[in-house]
Amino acid sequence: MARIDSAAPKTGDVAGTGGPLRWLDSQKNRLIVLTVLAFLAMFLPLISSNYVLEVMTTAWFYVMLCLGLNIVVGYAGLLDLGYAAFFAVGAYTTGILTSHFGVNFWLTIPAAVLFSICAGVIIGGPTLRLRSDYLAIVTLGFGEIVRIIARNLEITGGASGLIGIEKPSIFGFELNQIFHFYYVFLILACLACFVSYRLQHSRLGRAWQYVREDEDAAEAMGIDRVAVKLYAYVIGAIFGGVAGCFFAAKMTAISPETFMFQQSVLILLGVVLGGMGKIPGVIVGAFALVLFPEVFRDLGSSRILVFAIVMLVIMLYRPKGIWPEKKS
């Protein structure tokens, strides 16, 4: 499985993690754990109830979103506070094209990618030249703009949103059961892992790392920092857009309230929680994000408060996340 392979660093000689995770240092133990996890992920629908499947599907969905944001925040070190906007762009593209124009679901994906790229360039283009703080607040504003536009336009269904989005089908086989979507999102998450991993170890990935660590030095080494950041921003946008398409297809209904500021913060928290820039860390973070409120249901609406306190404590005591990337 691509996800598992890509998630495991191919080195047996990494420096010790220390603590309770030390036994994971050996490559053999790592493989055993990953194989068990992979089997669990593959055969979960056979053994679990619909409730568990629903939660796990959401978890894989957040894995994809968090990995997308991780490219922007973790790899390139840019703070994006309006990531839900790209997710909204994808979801509304699919929603509008399928319900108003009767376009096949699979054809809406390229359209969503295109719109996400445009949105990414419009927002990233002017702001990435400036200090990174500006990007944070402009993305925050952008997230609000997209939500307000979705609320006020007729084509997006206004405040009540779009309903009755057609479920997709593959070769005449309609995806309508929860376990269909479980596999769809599992595959998407694997794909996102694979792409993230390849990007991290590409020329571009190394450029992101340089820019993140020292922008001036990176520029002195001949890296075009604006272009490199823009790539990160746009690729992150594409992840969010594609995730949005499938979200719309699964839910069959979308409304502007799904794409509130809190949504962007949640996705960011998933990235920060596990450790920015590290794929297994982000996956753990995304799962924690989805499973925590399910386990502690009594918390209700104050879960964001708990999340925020956790985020503050992590930043103060473990600024690299629970499971940080090892420095070479």
């Binding site: 703080d133 944070a136 913060v265 960011l268 925020a308 306190i309």
Partner: peptide, 18 residues
């Protein structure tokens, strides 16, 4: 790093409003 302090500020904001 700048990113960490921005996230800290965001966390404080979320704590206050929530």
């Amino acid at each position: 790093p700048r990113l960490s302090i921005l996230i800290t500020a965001l966390a404080v904001s979320m704590i206050l409003s929530n």
